[in-house]
């Protein structure tokens, strides 16, 4: 019985290592830049969705304002580089820290609200961030910020033609977020957070500090989201409020987790692996044909999953395993 949990955790860690190894060699036979780019974006979103999942899934605090932490990380790392020559390889951690700090600042008042009210408050806060950056000249306002190219360098995270380095950067990011979630699942915090999600009253009667739990989850979630924002900014080489702080971005970060399965280790990964290619392919094949046709397909997919598999795509795997155990 006790070994059930430990064995499951070991199995998950081994699965994680195998997937990591497979993803490390995946791009080597692929020469095509388009596909490599698609994999990089998928990995980035697997990490971002995992970051969202840490707060929204495990702790049950649905945030629809994660673009704020993403944008903050992107802006902080980029401005440090552009204005002070601070290397993005280190700057991205500063961006992550700012993302985490912002999540704490948002959480301080907003976690006093429960359920849907927290979600609504985060929408508003995200929108405030967007408007703030849009009208703030020091950070480029609506024009945004270009990242000047200074030659291939790991320290600056700049590579003129190669895609491979960014494959490994985003893979490391997604793996770190996954590993953080794995650690949390087995720790005192993870238990407290899931208890908070399932039943707040019962949780606090057992000595769980509800507010502190939410704050800790928010800080870790915000950190990884900011980190992802910094990586995205260096990869794309240009940021403006629309592309990193827009409200639709908050939804995009949450969607893979929701589609794959909230509060699960593999949900965000599976969700991103399905959602990003679908979104990319539908855009390239249908995006030109009629306005928004690609988005309709995208939306339809989410509706189908929500109706048929409300627990997310990973529940398909879980169900088979449960049946095997029952037999």
């Amino acid at each position: 019985m006790e070994n059930g949990i430990l064995a499951r955790r070991r199995r998950e860690l081994i699965t994680g290592a195998v997937v990591l190894a497979a993803l490390a060699v995946l791009p080597l036979p692929i020469a095509d830049v388009y596909t490599r780019n698609l994999i990089i974006i998928t990995l980035l979103f697997a990490g971002l969705a995992q970051a969202w999942n840490i707060l929204g899934g495990y702790c049950g605090q649905i945030s629809l304002g994660h673009a704020l932490y993403f944008g903050a990380g992107a802006y902080v790392a980029t401005l440090l580089f552009v204005n002070a020559g601070f290397p993005p390889l280190i700057g991205m951690f500063v961006g992550g820290a700012v993302g985490g700090l912002l999540a704490l600042l948002v959480g301080w008042p907003c976690f006093r609200l429960s359920g849907h009210y927290y979600a609504i408050a985060t929408v508003v806060v995200g929108e405030i961030g967007y408007l703030l950056f849009l009208n703030w000249d020091y950070v480029g306002g609506a024009t945004g910020v270009y990242v000047p190219f200074k030659g291939d360098s790991w320290l600056a995270l700049q590579f003129k033609t190669q895609k491979l380095p960014y494959h490994y950067v985003t893979l490391a990011f997604a793996a770190a977020a996954w590993f953080a979630a794995w650690l949390i699942e087995g720790s005192r915090w993870g238990f407290a957070w899931r208890a908070v999600r399932d039943d707040v009253v019962a949780a606090r009667s057992l000595g769980v500090r509800v507010f502190a739990s939410k704050m800790a989850a928010a800080a870790i979630s915000g950190f990884f989201t900011g980190l992802g924002g910094a990586i995205f900014a260096q990869y794309v080489g240009y940021i403006d409020p629309e592309s990193v702080l827009g409200g639709q971005f908050s939804i995009l970060i949450a969607l893979p987790a929701v589609l794959g399965g909230v509060g699960t280790l593999w949900g965000p990964v599976v969700g991103a692996a399905v959602l990003m290619p679908v979104s990319e392919l539908s855009r390239s094949y249908l995006g030109g044909s009629g306005r928004g046709f690609d988005l309709m397909l995208y939306g339809a997919l989410i509706v189908v999953v929500a109706l048929a598999r409300p627990q997310g795509l990973v529940s398909l795997l879980g169900r088979r395993r449960e049946r095997a155990r029952a037999a």
């Binding site: 238990f191 899931r194 208890a195 399932d198 039943d199 949780a203 057992l206 000595g207 769980v208």
Partner: peptide
Amino acid sequence: VRSFDSMTVLENVMVGAFA
């Protein structure tokens, strides 16, 4: 009853034990 329904029986009790 207010059980933590996404968790197993053992995990439910572990929440208490973490106190």
